[in-house]
């Protein structure tokens, strides 16, 4: 259902003691889009990610994800009142992510993520990394290990399929030759790509990337753009990404949300955001007369 709303973040607030990291943030992400979340250091981007992926329980607010088209959002109030994590609606379902523990967000709501500081299983091979990502379907196929120990054939077939999926992803990220090397031995750029491929092996409908281009050289950065566009166009996966590299953001994103001090200051297409004085101010700082001008403007609006 490309073009329909996939994710709705509503009035999300996260407090750590007295510190308000995210304050009353609302935005939406559309299916088939690359949505970028940008902002200066410490703006609360990673906190938003952790709230969406279940690593933090937000202090307030709601994070809803629709499976099978935006029609599922019709049931959002019903689900909220029932205290349910998930409510089926027709073919689809509504998932309230803020109520789920982290692993359920990936397993049932099908939201995958990567990390700002790469978190690969460095002592395991590249192929093993991609197989760990397919843990849940494989676990089921192995009869929760009981049938697997007895060596039942259904598991062997399922494992071969899992290896095929891993091979397909290795092909796409250009690491087929290094499949049997430990992940910790790969160069930095390849580790970033592998982490994305590993997240994709969980077959997500929403992939959250935390600074995927950090530390990449211009050529690798370009390759990454191609990979991300490829994921958006070929897989049934929408992307939500945090990024500092503005060339990446402007190049590939369809929709940009700008955060500063935990508050949303702009929301729109890359073009709109690029020319927004508040965004420029947040990133570059502003001269005194401009501050006065913006303040006057804001007061005038109010």
């Amino acid at each position: 259902m490309r073009g329909e709303t996939l994710l709705r973040v509503e009035h999300l607030t996260m407090r750590f003691g007295g510190l308000v990291a995210v304050n009353d943030l609302s935005f939406t992400a559309k299916a088939g889009d690359i949505t970028a979340l940008i902002g200066p250091n410490g703006a609360g981007k990673t906190t938003v990610f952790n709230c969406i992926t279940g690593f933090y329980k937000p202090s307030e607010g709601r994070v809803a994800l629709a499976h099978g088209g935006e029609a599922a959002f019709a049931a959002i109030e019903e689900a909220t009142e029932k205290g349910a994590r998930t409510l089926s609606v027709g073919d689809g379902a509504i998932h309230l992510l803020e109520r789920m523990p982290d692993y359920i967000v990936t397993q049932h709501a099908r939201v995958a993520r990567t990390f700002q500081n790469i978190r690969l299983f460095s002592g395991m091979t590249v192929l093993e990394n991609l197989l760990v990502a397919q843990h849940n379907p494989l676990m089921l196929a192995s009869g929760y290990s009981v049938l697997g120990i007895l060596g039942l054939s259904s598991y062997t077939t399922r494992q071969r399929e899992a290896v095929e999926l891993a091979k397909a992803w290795l092909e796409r990220i250009g690491l087929t030759e290094r499949a049997d090397d430990p992940a910790g031995d790969l160069p930095y750029g390849a580790q970033r790509r592998l982490e994305i491929a590993r997240a994709m092996c969980t077959k997500p409908i929403l992939l959250c990337l935390d600074e995927p281009a950090a530390g990449l050289n211009p050529r690798e950065s370009l390759e990454l753009n191609t990979l991300l566009r490829d994921i958006r166009d070929r897989d049934e996966t929408s992307l939500l990404l945090i990024e500092h590299d503005m060339t990446v953001v402007m190049e590939i994103s369809d929709h940009v949300v700008v955060l500063d001090y935990g508050v949303k200051i702009a929301d729109g297409s890359p073009e709109q955001v690029k020319n927004d004085p508040k965004v420029i101010g947040a990133y570059l700082g502003v001269e005194d007369e401009e501050v006065a001008a913006v303040e006057a403007e804001v007061e005038g609006r109010a």
């Binding site: 982290d102 692993y103 395991m124 849940n136």
Partner: peptide, 22 residues
Amino acid sequence: LPVGRAWEALREDEIACRSLGI
């Protein structure tokens, strides 16, 4: 089996395991 790989993945990085639905 997947459970053994999950054990080793847990030893390597628990947070990454959780992000993969384990």
